[in-house]
Design a protein around this nucleic acid. Structure first.
Length: 506
DNA sequence: TACATTTGACCCGAC
DNA sequence: CGTCGGGTCAAATGT
């Protein structure tokens, strides 16, 4: 972690090109959980590796996000230049709706924006695939507006592509990957339709449905399993490791279910499972302006972003619910531990914000491991140290509630945690605001050319754990990472050993 | 010995 | 005013 808290060290389970998957990513895939940018970057890199074609470009989530949030067109042009967008026929851009790069808890929904220059009949266009329309339409429009000046055609329209509607609050990322897979499956066949207006939209309609999306998590786990088995720890790619193009394809030698895979993977590690971050990583919500990033790259102890006054992760029974970006000192988030069939929190959020986003699940719907924290004032996974001062069984709660105070002498912050017998956090509530820095300030990391480090994966909702990482991103590193992008970013696809945020921080 | 956790008692607001 | 329930205290216990 950025603050060097050893107990929250995440175990890497797979390095694939420049993308490193951590054990918590497997948890995310197993659960009904919002996919993080690492998983999305991983699978897009995997798809890209199968399509060595300059006409097709798949970008990791960090790049569109960066482009959307650069301060001026000149910076956009500088960053986008190596991507050679104008010469591509198809560009896949994952979109996240985090509206404010200064807020760590932004972002709630994944969609896929496709820059399509492959259809002679329709002409250039942006096609937006949103499984919860029109949630991400503003973000997609913003990205399209940023990209239009870089393209030869003027007034390229943005249309909504056919996308099945998700029926829960957490599968938007899976839909993005399913659509991307359908497009990549279609891509080799496009020559047959070169004289027609046929495009991938039909492929998406055909291949992306509730069943295929439902099966995709298990398939992703199987893919990771296979890659691990093949000791594919760098950018090697074998066709045999390809995620089945069709959900029905599955090796009988592999764990059948995600749960099976998780068990298998735990057994493989021969190590105690490291503390898993309490929530899914998020898009680079702390990715700031180019200049700020540059400044931050030299900052040792950059000011910490003040966290929310109170953060609550609770099961759907929660009724109090406000947006995490609000300043109100009320409960602001909800989670469920296991049940994926109810959507109380989601619905409440939707009602409160008027926005059908995946925010609740994105933010907090992660079953999490109890931090491997011993006594003696250890840092918690949130970067602060806490002293327990009470525990009781509260009515309506399935698990005992523990009460903690921040151990800083003058800090008023308290938190309540409900934990399952096996150490998973069912609910966590923060009260107040820390009046002191985290015990371990961010260290100065080394610059990396890894595009992955652009993805300032932050642990939505709870804390900003990767400050040392995203503050380390320098513009040079950004440009270097982007330079030479082929059908997929070189750094993204073939980069050197990733300078993983969490590893570097130690 | 020091410090964190445990746990029953107590406080206090809501009903 | 009594009861209930969530939050806190503090002595006992554990490491």
């Amino acid at each position: 972690m950025a603050h060097g808290g050893g107990e929250e060290e995440e175990e890497r389970v797979l390095s694939h090109g420049d993308v490193v998957l951590l054990r918590c990513d497997l948890t995310i895939l197993r659960g009904p959980h919002f996919l993080n940018d690492r998983i999305i970057a991983f699978y897009l890199a995997h798809l890209a590796a199968d399509h060595h074609d300059d006409d097709l470009l798949l970008l990791p989530p960090s790049v569109p996000y960066l482009l959307s949030n650069l301060p001026d067109p000149a910076s956009v042009a500088a960053v986008a230049d190596p991507l050679r967008l104008a010469s591509r026929r198809l560009v896949l851009l994952p979109v996240n709706d985090n509206p404010d790069v200064s807020h760590a808890e932004g972002g709630s929904h994944w969609t896929l924006l496709v820059l399509d220059n492959s259809n002679a009949v329709s002409g250039p266009r942006f096609v937006h695939h949103d499984s919860l329309p029109p949630t991400n339409l503003p973000a997609a429009r913003r990205l399209a507006a940023v990209l239009r000046p870089l393209l030869p055609a003027s007034a390229i329209p943005l249309i909504e592509g056919p996308t099945p509607r998700q029926t829960n609050g957490y599968d938007c990322g899976v839909f993005v990957l399913a659509v991307a897979r359908a497009i990549c499956n279609w891509w080799p066949t496009r020559a047959r339709h070169s004289n027609s207006d046929s495009d991938w939209l039909e492929a998406v309609k055909r291949e992306v449905n509730a069943d295929s999306v439902k099966a995709m998590r298990t398939q992703l786990l199987q893919l990771i399993h296979t890659l691990i088995q093949n000791n594919t720890t760098t950018n090697q790619h074998s066709p045999s490791t390809q995620l089945p193009s069709h959900p029905s394809i599955a090796s009988t030698s592999l764990p059948v279910t995600a749960q099976d895979f998780g068990t298998w993977c735990d057994m493989q590690s021969h190590k105690k499972v490291a503390a898993v971050k309490p929530v899914a990583s998020r898009p680079s919500s702390r990715l700031r302006s180019f200049s700020m990033l540059q400044e931050d790259s030299t900052a040792i102890d950059s000011p910490r972003v003040t966290s929310l006054e109170e953060i609550i992760l609770r099961r759907p029974k929660a009724t109090r619910f406000t947006h995490p970006l609000s300043n109100s000192s009320t409960e602001i988030a909800a989670t469920r531990l296991e049940d994926s069939g109810t959507h109380t929190a989601y619905d409440q959020k939707k009602a409160d914000t008027g926005k059908g986003a995946c925010w609740d699940n994105l933010t907090v719907s992660q079953s999490v491991r109890k931090p491997n924290v011993s006594a003696k004032n250890s840092l918690s996974y949130d970067g602060y140290s806490w002293r327990k001062y009470g525990q009781k069984q509260v009515k309506g709660s399935e698990f005992p509630r523990s009460y903690y105070k921040c151990t800083h002498p003058t800090c008023p912050v308290k938190r309540k945690v409900e934990m399952t017998p096996d150490g998973r956090i069912a609910e966590i509530v923060y009260n107040g605001e820390h009046n002191h820095p985290k015990p371990h300030p961010p260290r100065k990391p080394t610059l990396s050319t890894s595009v992955e480090t652009l993805v300032a994966t932050n642990d939505a909702g709870l804390e900003n754990k990767l400050e040392g990482c995203d503050q380390a991103i320098g513009s040079d590193a950004v440009v270097e990472a982007l330079r030479g992008g082929c059908h997929c970013l070189d750094g993204f696809r073939n980069g050197n050993e990733i300078s993983d945020c969490k590893k570097r921080s130690n």
